[in-house]
């Protein structure tokens, strides 16, 4: 277990974490402002990845593919918000869970119908592929560094948007008291659509960025969706800062747990048992983390509302 391996794994964990943040940011805004549980957020991630793969296949341009991913997910998000989600704000969580579960079925099968069941591939462009040498002689893939940079840039941008702009003020006001800002003359339903669009575009961007290092296939959104829920529950629902902290915690716990828990167990038992036990524990680690956080603080690390 060398220092280089540890630093590599920490970078991998960071990369995973910032991509989770892109998903979690949208979810936490949508829940914080509209009080809506959106299980279909993973479908928007998938739509982003498929749009990127299709456009990259047609044009060969990765940047165009990213733009297409955000646009497609944003359009799908607005469509879903206007047609379905808008009717669910006043209902209880149970109806929201069921309706967005239904949306997952529709989106997944619709995508399968359009693109088939086989995975698509989205290539990393030449100018972003290959390793770079970090200080200390560590070789690390450039693309993953770009992902970390892009994720942190989006986090900073969102932070500025929320704290420094008029829209941000409206979003924060909407979280606190939606009747009051409606009374002050803010078009609340347009604000909702806008937030939904923003969240959808971020999910689509995450799908496209991650699609280049994994395969693009139907059902790719749901595992990420569940992790994003874990993230926002750990961070406290509605808090962007919480989403960032939660995402990095989950990313690092998952990546480092998979490497170090088997090693740790080897100190106590024989290698075969240690590998099996370590792997099982590592796969549960983030859920154990979430359970522990909720038992310690039932509304998450940065959550204010009960």
């Amino acid at each position: 277990m060398s220092a280089i391996l540890i630093i590599e794994q920490i970078l991998n964990g960071l990369q995973f974490g910032v991509m989770l943040f892109l998903m979690a940011a949208g979810l936490t805004l949508i829940f914080g402002v509209m009080g809506l549980i959106n299980l279909a957020h993973g479908s928007l991630y998938m739509i982003g990845a498929f749009a990127a793969a299709a456009v990259a296949g047609l044009t060969g341009s990765f940047l165009l593919a990213l733009v297409a991913a955000m646009a497609a997910a944003a359009v799908a998000g607005v469509l879903v918000e206007v047609v379905v989600i808008r009717r669910l704000y006043a209902t209880d969580h149970l109806d929201q869970v069921l309706a967005t579960f239904a949306l997952i079925l529709i989106f997944s099968e619709g995508t399968r119908w359009m693109f088939g069941s086989f995975p698509l591939f989205l290539d990393i462009p030449d100018y972003l592929s290959g390793p770079v040498t970090l200080p200390g002689g560590i070789q690390y893939p450039l693309y993953r560094l770009v992902l970390i940079g892009a994720g942190l840039a989006v986090a900073a941008g969102l932070g500025l948007l929320i704290t420094r702009t008029r829209i941000g003020i409206q979003i924060r006001a909407g979280e606190n008291d939606r009747e009051m800002i409606a009374a002050l003359g803010v078009d609340i339903s347009r604000l909702y659509t806008l937030i939904f669009m923003l969240g959808a575009a971020l999910a689509g961007l995450a799908g496209a960025l991650v699609g280049a290092i994994q395969s693009v296939q139907v059902g790719m959104g749901e595992p990420v969706l569940i992790l994003a829920f874990v993230v926002i529950v750990i961070g406290g629902i509605g808090s962007i800062k919480g989403a960032l902290v939660g995402a990095l915690l989950v990313g690092l716990t998952d990546t480092l747990g998979g490497i170090f828990l088997p090693e740790l167990f080897k100190l106590f038992t024989d290698p075969a048992t240690a590998t099996a036990a370590g792997a099982s524990l590592a796969s549960m680690a983030i859920y154990i983390l979430m359970g522990a956080v909720l038992i310690w603080r039932p509304t998450g690390l940065f959550g204010a509302r009960a």
């Binding site: 549980i37 874990v230 529950v233 099996a276 792997a279 099982s280 796969s283 859920y287 909720l294």
Partner: peptide, 29 residues
Amino acid sequence: LSLRTAGVYFIMITLAFGQMAYFFTISWP
């Protein structure tokens, strides 16, 4: 454990227990 929370947190924590069991059975040879 879950009933310490309520509302959406209850939904999420029960979901998390489900995932825990799922990943445990997958990785338990």
